[in-house]
Amino acid sequence: MTELIERYVHQVGRYLPPKERADIEAELRSLIQDMLDDRYPETPSQADVASVLAELGDPRRVATSYHKEQYLIGPSLYPWMMMVMRYGWLVVPMVMIFLSVFGVLISSQPPTVFNLLLEPIWASLQATFIFSAVVVLIFALIQHFDLEFDANTPFNALELPQIDDPRVVDRFKSVSGTALGTFFVLVFLYFLAVGGLTLRFNLSDPGDVIASPVGWMIVLVVAIIIMTVINIIALWRNTWTGSLLLTQTILEILGNIAMYFSVYMPVYQRIIADNSALSDVPLPEIIVILYAVITLVNSGIQVVKLWNYRSNNTAHLTTQSI
């Protein structure tokens, strides 16, 4: 009889928090005895013990009822994590596909369909998986150490931004812009140091380098540095102004042109040297024009919004003050 009880208590104990295990086990033993005494005043049979244990329930469930509610990532943190995740799921695969196609194209071996299709997919799957794991890990640590976001700024309803306020800084866009900018600056400083483009990041042995005009590389680095600084300023102030946005747009176009001369053209010429089938397509020009159009349309829309908003709002303010 006690043997069955011990087996049960042992099973519960396996899932208990180690610190409290002995105490909970002892209390559980005494509870089972109390239940048996209450229900079977004469010596209980094995079946009686079994029915009492069945009433208490599955050992694992009994054990979990002693645990506090624990989260890897709690409900208050979860939406933040998913925001970061969704952003990464969009950006990471694109960056990886770009990088690995670039890598295949400039490698000394002629590209095959396998290399060109499967490698980028595999690389982006891998990177997305690692990215997700790191994000979960970071948020789990935040949860574990109970860190809070923005806890020291009290909420003031009157300072809520207008729904269509174009000045509001998209934090994720700016943060990722800053991170990407820093990354590209480092990469291009490395290219400058080794005298051209390569995917092997080793200063003493950069491998097969594609020559690239130094002047345009410097323009690109400077443009990216200024754009990154503007991003940080916008983040810091939490508003975009017309002049900041305009500078940002001009720099983006300038950077785009610098990309054309320092990256697209040299890489394209290398590809053509290996693969003449592509020689009819003006790929670099297409990329540059496409990018410039997208930039102009995007910033153009925002500048116009900003302008309208400002003139509307000053009108509002004057009527209000009257």
Binding site: E20, I24, E27, L28, S30, L31, D34, M35, D38, E55, L56, G57, R61, V62, S65, Y66
Partner: peptide, 26 residues
């Protein structure tokens, strides 16, 4: 002790399971 409390509560009309009460006491 736990079981006497269960009985006490039951006498007054409130049934509560062992699996709820013991963790609650802790």
């Amino acid at each position: 002790y736990g079981y006497s409390l269960i009985q006490r509560l039951a006498e007054q009309g409130l049934t509560i399971e062992e699996g709820t009460l013991y963790p609650l006491l802790r």
